[in-house]
Design a protein around this nucleic acid. Structure first.
Length: 418
RNA sequence: GUGGCCGUAGCUCAGCAGGUAGAGCACCCGGUUGUGGUCCGGGAUGUCGCGGGUUCAAAUCCCGUCGGUCACCCCA
């Protein structure tokens, strides 16, 4: 066992039947994304390390200890993307997409890499489907992006809770952070060690603490949402107005602090039940300063990312499963039968039916078992009798009804009956 | 990076007052010489994660190691 080669830790293989569920989630999501006017972008899985050092907060865990960074043969430092927003904004700037009309609306389906300790719902390589809308700063698009995210969850039939907050712009935070720190220092002796450390390094993160006594204390802390500048205040009110108008239910969570530090103003998170401690199935927010910090023009932006694996896990915990299915399985006997089977398979596949057959030369009973385990709705039998009469036996598996038909008429027959 | 739990057949697991392995599911064959999903009978499959130690004897006890998993952390 130990000598057998295995895949790297935290990078699970995706194969049937689970891959079917993934495909379906992504497929349904893409329909929604296109309806909202987003088109697909693909960026390389690795980027210059510098991109993430500039775009993401330099002191953050994500940058300091979770990136897969390596040197290529030319001595350049490259990093497997730990985030999709930064590369997409980079690409927008690099190709001048912002000059073709704003906002730039792009969606992606992408693998993300973060070197964390794996646990339920958290892998080192995972898949995000998400959008970035760059070049529009008003609250309309914030609300619409949230609406889009919720539409995707509805399309995959997963119930989620929407938590909403505004974390202001850097100016708001510059005023607010000292106030928060002052409060935290005043109760420092009652806080856990981690939180005490975060007072200086990353005070916003204390809101994520799971220690009950700390949570209590933080209820009395000043919240950024109460300290917004007039412009951010108006923006946030605008987002909530739109959501209210559209009948979208949300919970305001003044403790919600998005993980990535480029976020400004609107922040939201979507959680589902049935997931263990990693229960966020998606999240997003506004990042008005990011383009500029990457050396581009000043462009506001907003986006979200949904975790495909976590959505699949949440659905599976509800008992949802997808099994491979087949329209037709062809059972044949003998060499002539097999030749006829392949020629019929080609015709049926051309006509759009998922079709499979036996490659092992199994006995008829075994071929029927195979048809059954592959989930075939129909079986076509080509044996001696059929070859002689020129009519194949077409059996509907769930009813057992059989019909004798010449090969040329089978596709038409199936099209009518299925 | 820190901690708890777990590594036995393809999968889920039993066996652990030490005597060198078993069940269910899945798979293959047959009962039904051309019909699956039900039933009955038969069959194949394991370096019991790896290394070392104790012992006449280790899946079982001890040490180490690797792997998995869950939680912290962090986040989708």
């Amino acid at each position: 066992m130990s000598s057998k080669i295995s895949g790297p830790k935290g990078a699970p293989d995706l194969f049937p039947p689970r891959s079917l569920l993934h495909d379906e989630i992504i497929g349904r999501a893409v329909i929604q994304l296109r309806r909202f006017g987003y088109n697909r972008i693909e960026t390389p899985v690795f980027e210059h390390t510098q991109l993430f050092e500039k775009g993401l907060e330099p002191g953050s865990d994500l940058v300091t200890k979770q990136m897969y960074t390596f040197e290529d043969r030319g001595g350049r430092s490259l990093t497997l993307r730990p985030d999709m927003t930064t590369p997409v904004v980079r690409a927008i700037i690099e190709h001048g997409m912002d000059r073709q009309g704003l906002p730039v609306k792009l969606y992606y389906v992408a693998s993300i890499f973060r070197q964390e300790r794996p646990q339920a719902g958290r892998q080192r390589q995972f898949t995000q489907v998400g959008v970035e809308a760059v070049g529009s700063g008003g609250p309309d698009i914030d609300a619409e992006v949230i609406q889009l995210a919720l539409n995707i969850y509805r399309a995959v039939e997963l119930d989620v809770n929407l938590a909403l907050n505004s974390i202001g712009h850097p100016g708001c935070r510059a005023d607010y952070i000292p106030k928060l720190q002052a409060y935290l220092r005043s109760v420092a002796d009652q806080l856990c060690g981690d939180c005490r450390r975060k007072i200086e390094t990353n005070p916003l993160r204390t809101f994520d603490c799971k220690v009950e006594s700390d949570r209590k204390l933080l209820e009395d802390a000043p919240f950024i949402v109460d300290q917004l500048c007039p412009e951010c205040e108006i923006h946030y009110a605008g987002v909530k107005d739109r959501l209210d108008e559209w009948g979208i239910r949300y919970t305001e969570d003044p403790r919600l602090v998005r993980g990535l530090d480029y976020y400004t103003r609107t922040a939201f998170e979507l959680t589902a039940v049935g997931l263990g401690s990693q229960n966020a199935v998606g999240g997003g927010g506004r990042y008005d300063g990011l383009a500029e910090s990457l050396g581009g023009p000043s462009l506001p932006g907003i986006g979200f990312g949904l975790g495909v694996e976590r959505i699949a896990l949440a659905l599976e915990s509800k008992g949802v499963e997808r099994k491979p299915a087949l329209d037709v399985f062809i059972v044949s006997i003998g060499d002539r039968g097999r030749t006829a089977a392949f020629s019929l398979a080609a015709k049926l596949r051309e006509a759009g039916f998922t079709t499979d057959l036996d490659y092992a030369g199994r006995v008829m009973k075994g071929q029927f078992k195979a048809a059954n385990s592959r989930g075939a709705n129909w079986v076509v039998v080509i044996g001696e009798k059929e070859l002689e009469s020129g009519k194949y036996t077409v059996r509907q598996m769930n009813t057992g009804d059989e019909e004798e038909l010449p090969p040329s008429r089978i596709a038409g027959y199936l099209a009518v009956r299925s």
